[in-house]
Write a protein that binds this DNA or RNA. Structure first.
Length: 260
DNA sequence: AGAAAGCCTCGGCCGC
DNA sequence: TGCGGCCGAGGCTTTC
């Protein structure tokens, strides 16, 4: 579920613990998979004071007076502060809280706790993350950065795959990618290098509109194409049949009429 | 039963 | 033939 819009809402929630000092932290073996050892999280976080929050794409960053901490949420992860969600429930998966789905967290000296709740086990904690692996943040995308991220003319992978490439553009997930291509009227299978100037312009416009509009509406799942995101769905714009294909490794919905 | 909104690894292919 | 980079496929994990 979480794409850049959701992670940004988690970041705003995490802002509330700026200034708080960590008394204790924990992470299970899955959440700690990117660390040198499962115990590293607990060992490192104790005594740190959160000084600021940050975000790069889908990576939530907690600056401290020592190391930098970071959280990833996988497909179903949610950030909770004392049991309160950073957004309204889960669109995908169960809309419920279960204590055994709490995979990692921080407790503070003031008694509060910030935890990662994830029914599946794809969420991760990180210490001193390498931000160089991530491209330009999707919520701070200029036209020139967008052109650079798309790359040169020629062939290249499907435009959808490139939009999902976190080392190029950080934060676009499956739903946001489908929505912006839907709005721009572009076939997601088009090799990125074959988009002409008009298509690039249309896609950039759709990109920024998608971020702004869906951000205002409340998340990645509020896109215009979502009403047709099921087998047999019809395009809400022109009534065309929606196609379903795997592109860039993800299930892709696109209109057979206006996305060509 | 099959698919799921993220990410990582692996292996094949291409070009130098 | 060798190697790096690019890219797609598949796996992880659990749930509904």
């Amino acid at each position: 579920m979480p794409e850049v819009l959701e992670i940004e809402s988690y970041r705003r929630l995490a802002e509330r613990v700026v200034g708080a000092r960590v008394s204790r932290g924990w992470a299970d073996e899955y959440a700690a998979k990117k660390l040198t050892a499962p115990s590293a999280w607990a060992r490192v976080v104790a005594g740190l004071t959160i000084t600021a929050t940050d975000r790069r794409g889908k990576l939530l960053v907690l600056q401290t007076d020592g190391v930098t901490l970071a959280l990833r949420f996988g497909m179903t992860g949610v950030l909770l502060l004392d049991g309160e969600a950073g957004l309204e429930g889960l669109f995908y998966g169960p809309h419920e809280y279960r204590s055994d789905w709490v995979r990692a967290g921080l407790e503070f000296e003031d008694g509060r706790s910030l935890v990662v709740h994830d029914p599946r086990r794809l969420a991760r904690v990180e210490i001193d993350p390498d931000l160089d692996e991530l491209g330009v943040d999707a919520l701070a995308m200029s036209r020139s950065a967008f052109d650079a991220a798309l790359g040169a003319r020629g062939e290249g992978p499907a435009i959808k795959a490139r939009l999902l490439d976190q080392s190029r553009i950080a934060g676009v997930g499956n739903l946001l990618a489908d929505e912006m291509l839907f709005r721009a009227g572009i076939d997601p299978r088009t090799p990125v290098g074959r988009l002409d100037s008009a298509q690039r312009t249309a896609l950039y416009r759709a990109f920024t509109q998608t971020m702004r509009t869906l951000g205002r509406r409340g998340g990645s799942h509020t896109g215009d194409h979502m009403v047709s995101r099921f087998p047999g769905g019809l395009c809400p714009r022109d009534g065309g049949a929606m196609r379903i294909e795997t592109i860039g490794g993800r299930t892709t919905y696109f209109c057979s009429v206006h996305q060509r």
